[in-house]
Write a protein that binds this DNA or RNA. Structure first.
Lengths: 183, 183
DNA sequence: CGCCTTTATGCAACTTGTTGCACAACCGCT
DNA sequence: AGCGGTTGTGCAACAAGTTGCATAAAGGCG
C-alpha cells in the first residue's frame, strides 16, 4: 500500500510526468522508496482513475507525448490519512544477513570478496547522501518541511553508516579465521 | 530468490517439518528472514520436486500428519553456489521514512504517537535479541559457525539500535516544533 | 461418544514488484 | 529524406509475498 502514497508525496512536492517521477525515484526519493518506471506508470493510471490525481491538459495528448500529473484534494486527503494511520514495521528480510548465515553451514568461499564489494557500494552511497546533505540542508535554514526532510535523509545516512560498520566487523570476523571454506 | 535458500539453510541447521520451520522463521530465523507458513509449504513442495530436499519416510503419510524434510546434496550445492554468488544490495524501501516525508507535505498529525509506538516495538525487539545473545553466544565459545551466527545476530541488534536512535531524534524534531499539523 | 482445541498441511485469489519488450514522437545529422 | 539516439509511455508475463480459508488428525474432557 505504499507505492501510491510515495507517488502522491512526490507529486505534491512537484507535479511531474511519469518519466520525471522515475528519475526522482532513482535519485533523492530513492533514499527511502524505490520504484521502476513500469510500476509508476501502472500506478499513475490507477490513481487517475480513482480521482486522486489528474493529468494536466496538454495540446497533443498522444502516445510518446509527455503527460504531467497533479494531485487532487481527494488524493491529498488519502495521503494524510495513510501517513497518520497505524502501521507496524515490516518483518525483516535481508539477503546479505541470510547469506552469511548460510555461509555458516556451507562454507565461506567467496564471502569476503562479496562483503568487500558491498562495503564499497555502501561507502559510495554514503558519500552521495552526505553530498546531498551539504547541498540541501545547510545549517540554520529550518522550516518544518526542511527539518522533516532532513530527518529522513539522516535516516538514510545512518543506515548506510550501520552497514559500513557491520561489514567492517564482518570482514574482520571472516578474514580473521583462515578465510577458507568450512565444508 | 531468497526464500528457498533460507529454507535450505534452516533445514541444514536442523531437519524440520513445515510447521517447525514456520516457528523457527517466527523466532530466531526471523532476525534476518521472515516467511509465513503458506510461503514455506509452497516452497517445500517446489524444493522437493526439484530434488533439493526430501521428506523423511513416515509411518502414516497423510494430510494433517507431520512431514519432516532433510536437505539432499543437490540442495546443499545449490545453497553454496547462491551464498557465494554476487548479488547487489536491494533498493531501499521503508514505509516509515516515506510517511515522515509525506508528513512534511500533509502535516504531522498523528505522527508523534506513531513514532513512539514504533520506538517501543524496536526497544522490545532489541531486548529480545540481546537476551538471545546472552543465552546463545556467551564469550569464548567460538567455533567458526558460532562467530558467523553471532555476526548475523549483531546485525539485527545494531539495526534495532539504529532505529531506536533515529526514532528518538525524530521525536525530538517533531515534538520540538509545536506538534500541530502543518497544512 | 460427541465436542472443542491444538497441531499440521495445504489451496486459491489477490497484491506487489520485476523483466523484457513494443511503440511513438522528437532531435540532430548528413 | 533516411538514420540513429533520446525521451516518453505503455503492455504482458512472470516472480514473490499476503490473506483468507479448507481440511484433517490427535488429544482432552464431560
Amino acid at each position: 500500500m505504499s507505492l501510491p502514497h510515495a507517488i502522491l508525496t512526490a507529486l505534491l512536492e512537484k507535479p511531474s510526468s511519469g518519466l520525471e517521477l522515475t528519475r526522482r525515484f532513482d535519485k533523492s526519493f530513492g533514499f527511502f522508496w524505490s520504484a521502476t518506471h513500469q510500476q509508476i506508470y501502472r500506478e499513475l493510471g490507477k490513481l487517475e482513475q480513482s480521482g486522486a490525481i489528474r493529468a494536466l491538459p496538454s495540446e497533443t495528448p498522444a502516445r510518446g507525448q509527455k503527460k504531467e500529473y497533479e494531485v487532487l484534494p481527494a488524493g491529498q486527503a488519502e495521503l494524510a490519512a495513510w501517513a497518520s494511520a497505524g502501521q507496524d514495521p515490516r518483518a525483516m528480510r535481508d539477503p546479505l544477513l541470510l547469506r552469511v548465515r548460510a555461509a555458516a553451514v556451507v562454507g565461506t568461499a567467496g564471502l569476503p570478496a562479496e562483503l568487500r564489494r558491498h562495503l564499497a557500494l555502501h561507502e559510495r552511497q554514503l558519500e552521495l547522501y552526505e553530498g546531498i546533505e551539504r547541498r540541501d540542508f545547510p545549517p540554520e535554514r529550518d522550516s518544518e518541511q526542511d527539518r522533516l526532510r532532513h530527518l529522513v535523509l539522516r535516516g538514510g545516512i545512518e543506515l548506510e553508516t550501520f552497514w559500513i560498520r557491520w561489514l567492517t566487523q564482518a570482514l574482520e570476523t571472516v578474514d580473521g579465521e583462515s578465510g577458507t571454506g568450512a565444508e
